[in-house]
Structure formats: C-alpha cells, structure tokens
C-alpha cells in the first residue's frame, strides 16, 4: 500500500488506500454523478466560459498561427509563404542569439528569485507573526507593474554618479561610475537582478504556505526528539516545502520566458541587442518593423517552449485529480 504523504488530505489517503486494495486499479467510492450532457443547466453555466475562452484565447491563438504562414510587411497586403517564416527564423542569427539570451535570463531569474524566496520563507517560518509586514512588503513588489519597477531600476542603474548603485559603490571607490545598462557585459545581469527583485515575492509566499502546511505534530515530535532548528529546517521543512518550490519554479519559468516589459523599459533590447529575449524579438519584429507574419512565427516558437515546460508540470500537478 502506498504510504500517504504527510500533507495528503484524508480523501487522497482514502483514494490511495483504495487503489492499493484494488491491486493498482483505481476504485472511486464517490457516487457517480450525472454526466454533463444529461444536465442542460450545466451547458448554460459553462457556455459563457466557453465563449470568453474562445474570444480571448482560442481566436488569438488560431489567428497567430495563421498569420505565421504569411509575409505581412507594414500595411501592405499579406502574401502566403507557407513555412517560410519558420525557415527564415531558423537561419536568423539574431533569433538564435535571442534564444541564448532568453535561456540565460529565464534560468538566472528563476534561480535567483526562487532560491531567495525559498530562503526567506524558511526564515519567516520561524516567526510567522512577526515577519508578516516583511512578507507583505516583499510580496508588494510582485504586485508592482514591471514598467513602473523598471523606471525605478533605471534610476538605480543610472550611468553617472547620481545613480544609486554607482553611489553605493562610490563609497568604497570614490568617483566610481559605470553605465550598467549601457555595457553589453552588465546590461543583461542588471535586468536579471531587476526582474528577480520583482519576482521574489511569489516564491516566498508559495514556499511559506508549503512550510505552514507542515503538520505541527511533525515539528513538535522533532523538537521533543531534541532536533536543532537547523536540523529541523534541513530534514523537515526543506523537503516538505518542495511542492511549493516546484510551483514557484514553474510559474517563474513561464513568466521569465515571456519577459518583455522590464527589458523594454530598461534597455529596449540593447545595447547591440545584448538583452533581446524572444519576447522582445517578437515585439521588435511585429511592432517596430511591423513584420507581423515573422513576429507571429516567433510567437509560435515561444508558445511551443512554454508548452514544453507547462505540459509536464500540469500533468504532474493534476495527476490523480478527479
């Protein structure tokens, strides 16, 4: 029989137990309800959702895929080119460069924000009540629009001695001045730091919630057995907070892959395209150069990347759900 996880609900435990009794075959004890097609009221209730979903998600998706097969430049009539845009993307050195930049940005932003959020959640878990204002302040940054926080970071990274970062470094090294956003070697990392700052609130809250869900009896038992706080953190809190970490990684990866606003505000993809991610590439091709078909093809490639990350995560999260 499968051993129930510490945080499993009674229903899950029951379900898993029944699966064991059934020799691996899942047996539901829940009474079989009426099917959707048998209840006209259900259709009435879900129709608005289906209509909204079709307008807001399905139609733009189908239209984007359709546009990706056309050569559309400016306001001129569209011309069908089949997979031509995808072939061009494949050979576009600029696009290949954006893939590398996107990978660096996505992985670094996710690693920094999730590990920092996780670490802070662990610390906050020792004194949940007293750290509430602290958690609210950090999470507030997550709620600030990236465009707004971008302008704040512009003043932090200002190239002259008036920039906050240059001023701080200048305390140690008087007269120090560096154009953080103008140097191709530091611009991407400056954006990664700014994006991580905005993103750290969500992992903090998710990991904190996971830690809070640990049964008190488990922690009390550990204390009674004489475990030190560090041991409790290492052997109990860290492993049992992993579900929250996984969700945080998933959400941060998706957000970072689609990043645009903060790049637009801080560097506009420069200097010399060193901070251009796929999201910004899409914007530049579609909106600046108005090559809508080419931009749509880049969008579809990004969509595929997002699906590659999302589908396994969704399957894992919903496995066993009824």
């Amino acid at each position: 029989m499968a051993r129930p996880a510490a945080h499993s609900t009674a229903a899950e435990v029951n379900s898993q137990a029944m699966a064991g009794l059934g020799g691996g075959r899942r047996i539901s004890l829940a009474p079989r309800g009426p099917r959707l097609k048998d209840v006209p009221a259900a259709w009435i209730l879900i129709t608005p959702v289906i209509v909204l979903f079709s307008i807001a998600v399905l139609y733009p998706l189908v239209e984007t895929i359709r546009l990706s097969f056309f050569d559309i430049e400016g306001l001129r009539p569209a011309e069908y080119v089949g997979a031509g845009n995808y072939v061009e993307l494949f050979f576009d050195a600029g696009f290949r460069n954006t893939i590398v930049t996107t990978l660096v940005f996505t992985l670094a932003t996710t690693a920094i924000s999730v590990s920092l959020g996780w670490f802070l959640a662990m610390l906050c878990a020792f004194a949940p009540g007293r750290t509430l204002p602290f958690r609210v302040m950090i999470f507030a940054a997550f709620g600030v629009s990236e465009a707004v926080s971008g302008y704040m970071w512009v003043s932090i990274f200002r190239p002259d001695e008036g920039g906050l970062l240059n001023t701080i470094v200048g305390v140690v090294s008087p007269g120090f001045s560096h154009a953080w956003l103008g140097d191709p070697g530091t611009a991407l990392w400056a954006i990664i730091i700014a994006a991580s700052w905005s993103a750290v609130g969500l992992p903090l809250m998710l990991c904190f919630a996971s830690v809070q869900a640990i049964p008190k009896t488990v922690l009390e038992a550990a204390y009674m057995d004489g475990a030190k706080p560090l041991s409790i953190m290492r052997h109990i809190m860290v492993p049992l907070s992993l579900p929250g970490v996984r969700v945080a990684i998933f959400i941060n990866l998706l957000g970072a892959l689609r990043a645009f606003d903060i790049i637009y505000v801080l560097t506009g993809g420069g200097p010399v395209r060193s901070t251009e991610t796929i999201g910004y590439f899409m914007y530049r091709e579609s909106m600046t150069q108005f090559k809508l078909g080419y931009g749509a093809a880049a969008t579809v490639v990004l969509l595929i990347a997002v699906l590659i990350i999302s589908i396994p995560a969704i399957i894992q999260r919903t496995a066993g759900a009824k």
């Binding site: 190239p159 103008g182 140097d183 191709p184 530091t186 420069g270 200097p271 010399v272």
Partner: peptide, 17 residues
C-alpha cells in the same frame, strides 16, 4: 566617453547631461 556610456542614454537623457 566609453561605448557603454554612449549606449546608456537616449537623446533626452544626454540633453539632461
């Protein structure tokens, strides 16, 4: 100045300078 200083600003920021 350096290239990174040139890349740091648009015209309005340089006008401020």
């Amino acid at each position: 100045g350096s290239a990174s200083q040139m890349f740091a600003n648009d015209w309005d920021g340089e006008a401020d300078q």
